[in-house]
Design a protein around this nucleic acid. Sequence first.
DNA 1: CGGGCCTTTGACTGGTTTCAACTTCTGTGG
DNA 2: CCACAGAAGTTGAAACCAGTCAAAGGCCCG
Lengths: 196, 196
Amino acid sequence: MNKMMYGNILKNHIDKFTAVGDEEYDEIIKYFNPIHIKKKENLLTAGDVCKTHYFVVKGCLRKFFINEKGIEQTTEFAIENWWMCDNFSFLSQTESQFNIQAVEKSQLLAISKSNYEKLLDEHPTMEKYFRCIYQKAYAALQMRAKFVYEFSREDHYHHFSSSFPEFIQRIPQYLLASYLNFTPEYLSKIRKKDVS
Amino acid sequence: MNKMMYGNILKNHIDKFTAVGDEEYDEIIKYFNPIHIKKKENLLTAGDVCKTHYFVVKGCLRKFFINEKGIEQTTEFAIENWWMCDNFSFLSQTESQFNIQAVEKSQLLAISKSNYEKLLDEHPTMEKYFRCIYQKAYAALQMRAKFVYEFSREDHYHHFSSSFPEFIQRIPQYLLASYLNFTPEYLSKIRKKDVS
DNA sequence: CGGGCCTTTGACTGGTTTCAACTTCTGTGG
DNA sequence: CCACAGAAGTTGAAACCAGTCAAAGGCCCG
């Protein structure tokens, strides 16, 4: 699999926010490395500094941390066309509190911190692209935060599963429970109520 | 109070992320309107489209929505040097679900959606500024989201109050309870435990 | 086919909310 | 400047939602 095959999906994504010509795109893609990883493989481990930003071409990633009881808490998923990174660690270059791991076998485009900065310096159109990406991601996270206030735990599950039905089928139940911040047992009980 | 006095604090903020000359800054500030508002005055009402982005020069704003029980749920505060906006409504120009209101008498710089777009088109350095702002705000919101998973309600309060002691003194307790997503009664009980 | 991981189920527990009553604070008009 | 009304904060009792623990069943993968 070569860079070009990987690359088209990124170009399509960039074009949704800011037009970029083929010649410029050929320059841009040089800053990225294609990566293949297997299910459960780690891209970032808590305690390390996050030095890389990942764009999901195919597959699914999750971000999680280990709480004081030793339980994995999944805070975020990324599927096709999403970026994944511990932004806090990436920005400040301090130790990350998170792990990033593949939920499925995945294909990614990776850009290092130094390449990210060079890319932005040399391609102003990418400033615009990332400004749009972050503005949208921020807006989406604000809406997600609203759900925490708005919904009971049970409604939160129903809202999520009806909003992303295809996604529900793609991930194991214990990861969904973790993401929704409840125990696998409780999720199981909610689901039982639905069928009966 | 004239635009210049308002404006310096914005220039200082922009300079933290990207250098901007005095001449260019004079152009940039023209896109903004200075605004004074009184305590409890509204800047955005649920059901309206969010057409303006606010930068807090002095004072404090909050964003809240009314839940199905008729209770105000505060999801976000903005103090000096923060931006406030319903990004979701602003981006998509759909009806907002939120209200934005002054917690204290406040001085703001307001930029309309159309001016925001013109500003970004004509001043590429502002693309960089807003890219940085959103990246940072997104990172901060991701960390805040982590706290929801990490802390019990009681620990969440202790963590927040030790992280922002000056802020705690600035806002009434029932707004803090609302922001932390618990009842005023429960917050009162937690605080009682602390002193005894 | 076997072992370990995932899911389910039930009993028990405790952290939070709800509700109602009371006290304290705040600000506004006389 | 005081009085008073409404808002904000406190307290206690009762109910409930969701977590914990323990054990059993199902399913995937080696």
